[in-house]
Design a binder for these strands. Sequence first.
DNA 1: TTAGGGTTAG
Length: 655
Amino acid sequence: MISGCRPQAQNLTCLTRALLATTPTSPPPSFVLEANIDVYALCRQRRFHEAFDRGLHLRSLDAARCLHSHLVSSHSNIPTTLFNRLIDLYCKCGRLPDAYRVFSEMPHKDTCSFNTLMAGYSAVGNIAEARRLFDEIPVRDHFSWSSIIACYTRHGSPFESLDLYRRMHQEMRGGFLNCSNKFTASSALAASTAILSYRHGREIHCHIVRAGFESDAVVWSALADMYSKCGSIKHARQVFDLSSDRDVVSWTAMIGRYCDAGMRKEGLKLFSRMMQMGVLPNDFTYACVLDACSELAAEGLGRQVHNHMIRVGFDPSSFAASTILHMYSKCGNIEKAKLIFERMPLPDLVSWTSLISGLAQNGHPTEALHYYELLLESGMKPDHVTFVGVLSACAHGGLIDKGLAIFHSIKEKFKLKHTSDQYSCIVDLLSRAGRFQEVEEIINEMTMKPDKFLWASLLGGCRIHKNINMAKQAAEALLEIEPENAATYVTFANIYASAGMWDEVELIRQTMDHKGVVKKPGSSWIEIRGKVHMFLVGDASHPDAKKIYALLEKLQIKMKELGYVPDMNYVLHDVDEEQKEHTLSYHSEKLAVAFGIIATPSGTIIKVFKNLRICGDCHTAFKFISRIMERMIIVRDSNRFHKFRYGICTCGDYW
DNA sequence: TTAGGGTTAG
């Protein structure tokens, strides 16, 4: 019995009993399962359409077989409609060969018979068979065209799909208005979106408006999708706002579009609006919104979403559940993430990987490896993403031998090919440890071209070990791939600066000016009582700026008493020492931490988020501040978490 | 009786 269908099955028990009671012959054979007794009874009554409805609801192969045997053994003329429904049922149960057998043995096939079988092949991605049937249909109707167009769109052939959309209009000779309907239009729109063709999309939009079938949620959703991907998110929002028939899918899609475009706050605003309108979110909505919370590190809001999910009920093994885990982990609450994981009855590989990567980023490499061992013990096979998490745990923890052993096991034990991400991890691990000779050997052994992530990892390692020669090689390779990336110039310049090579620093600065490369401004933010406060370097725009600066000055004095020496290597330009110290004191992360201290009661954990990597001087300063203020300070930078407590950081200064 | 749109981890 299909467990999900139990309530409906129970509802029908009375009906079943009544039907069987009126049937004078023997009880159903033993192979007829409980859920299918209704189907069996309805067949005996020759109420075939109702039996099909029930079978389709259950998606039951037994029901299909039961109906098949009744139809075949029936001596009267069976209408084509019933055979068509049988084909459909077999298709929906994933039994294409049975569907085909029914189709080929039918005495009279109509267009619907072809359409139904074609949809079956389309659903399993057998494009060739679907097309063969389409070509054989003597008289094609709207269903035939919409099925084949959707088939090509769905299975990655958008050009074919648009070609057929055009051909449909020629062959049906009715002009666009009579041929296109909401099904063909939405599929053709999806095809235009796939090839990012605004022109095609716009043309189809015109057909939709002229033909007047725009009041349909799917058409609107496809339109908004096309505009957001080929035109602009603003147009997409206009379409969304104008649509009269919005369902949970179109709301979710619009929220997702904002998140994809990096406009996460807009996405979250729309989510609140959706809730106000009484639209019930589904797993996709939760996944979208929780992901936005993760990126914004808005744990407060994430927790509200989680609580809502608990109230309405959700499947703890669904992908939405793994997104909750990810959200807590990305917000620096790894304990809660672990709790969510432990409560999962059957964690999937995504959840395992998410926890392992989360532990690695949150500074618990040994625990990450412990969960990796548990994953192996569970019998689940790790995939290439799991290995990225495990290798990054080794890299962050300085576990070099373990990392190397796991890296080699990917090929030898798990018989998988190394991916470029895994190469980046191993280069990260080795170059952080200063083992540049081995890095060179690995790069030479690679079967693929090293990508930007690998070179960026190497450049980062060179910064730690002041390896100027290797840094030059990495920076040149990196700039060849990404000539506009300011981070490369800045890191490279910082390496020169730390070696006191100011002429070279100046040369890099001039190159940046010449090429018009602008350094991405560092920004940090902190969530206080549900409100996000954002800071830039030297920012005085915050209402509490005076208090923030006064506190930082006081802290500066106390830190120096305890032995803090500002690290000038993190200032790009060759300005005088006093000026450099001044710039360092007001980095965005320092402003955010100071505001956190002011705005929360003593003892509260301060959680700050930065869009770039934390600066080395701020890292040192926060160790002192955590001691002076007796507070735990958590900083999530673009790379990982740093937890400062009692004057030390969980990263062990290994970052 | 048959057809269309949204998806999680580094």
